[in-house]
Design a protein around this nucleic acid. Structure first.
Ligand SMILES: [Zn+2]
Ligand SMILES: [Zn+2]
Ligand SMILES: [Zn+2]
Ligand SMILES: [Zn+2]
Lengths: 169, 169
DNA sequence: GTTGACTTGTTATGCTATAACATACGATAT
DNA sequence: ATATCGTATGTTATAGCATAACAAGTCAAC
């Protein structure tokens, strides 16, 4: 694969790339990770992850549900919410609170602080590497004796492609 | 005021302090700011800010609404949402997405990147100063050509008081 | 006093999320 | 084998969050 970005594939979402390979690879890593942990990657859960991996956009639970229904799974909200909850717990997906939506994790198994860059034009969501963001937050918190357990760090703005295009996609 | 924290009152929410003074002062600054800008601080809007300022907790729109109703304002959701929207636009309140709730800004008029520390035990929310958090985010974004417009940075964890108490408050 | 911009009230609806219970499945132990 | 137990899924019902759209009131400028 000659014109793929290097392994530090930050912001891959905003770069033209072989997404089918990208998705397949991430799914494989997720499977391996689940196996190694003894977590049960059941059909609904795996299908839910596949659906999230179809694009670098975030999906609402009800959108995921629609897709699951089409595949013959139960058609009530808990079906989607439970599968998504499992994926989030396993670090295979992230919840994007700003969008009330979920996105597949592009770095499953790698220790990383998810920082999301959300393009307001094309709706793509990239997971940026920002370990120093977490460092800065820990420092600020520590200065007042607060101990951080979990974080949500999200930013909306415009991706390189959309800033280039007048009309955007 | 001898035992008040110094002006860099970060994490004030987690420190015992003269909150009535804290609230009155913040409200006064908000009023001044609105005046200076020609923004219309109408009765509902001002009352909404007062309600948010009653504590350092975040409040859901429907909780705010209940209070507004008790004061004789309209009792439909848009009444609360519109007032809250105004306050957020004017930088007098912040939306805490993780909680689907709103909190008064404790630094109105000061340029600041809101970083919220949310205690899972006592529900208090502090606005920490973390300009280097924004710096780190901008750097990460810039490295892939993304331009950040707005951010949500939130952390849940435990505040100093709650870590000290076995049973918490 | 009429116009026009803005604010508030009100109706109605849509979207997001979870509690609670029933059923099915799969592994383990007797 | 079959009883048992934990886990996963299906299903019903409801709770919680948010906004569109229109009507009615307010206020200042012309
Ligand atoms: Zn991809
Ligand atoms: Zn991730
Ligand atoms: Zn205070
Ligand atoms: Zn603030």
């Amino acid at each position: 694969m000659p014109d793929m970005p290097p392994l530090g594939d930050t912001g891959l979402a905003f770069v033209r790339h072989d997404h089918s390979h990208c998705a397949k690879d991430t799914l494989a890593r997720a499977d391996a990770l689940s196996n190694a942990r003894g977590a049960r990657m059941t059909p609904v859960r795996r299908r839910t992850l596949e659906i999230l991996l179809e694009s670098h956009k975030a999906m609402g639970a009800y959108d995921v549900l629609e897709r699951l229904v089409a595949d013959g799974f139960g058609n009530q909200p808990p079906v989607a919410y439970r599968a998504l909850e499992f994926l989030v717990e396993q670090g295979l997906a992230h919840r994007i609170r700003r969008l009330n939506a979920f996105a597949a994790c592009m770095h499953p198994g790698e220790a990383h602080v998810p920082v999301f860059l959300i393009c307001t034009s094309c709706q793509l969501v990239a997971e940026a590497p920002a370990d120093d963001v977490r460092g800065a937050m820990d420092a600020a918190a520590a200065s007042i004796g607060f101990v951080i357990e979990r974080t949500n760090v999200e930013a909306v703005g415009r991706c390189p492609a959309c800033r280039g295009n007048r009309a955007c996609r």
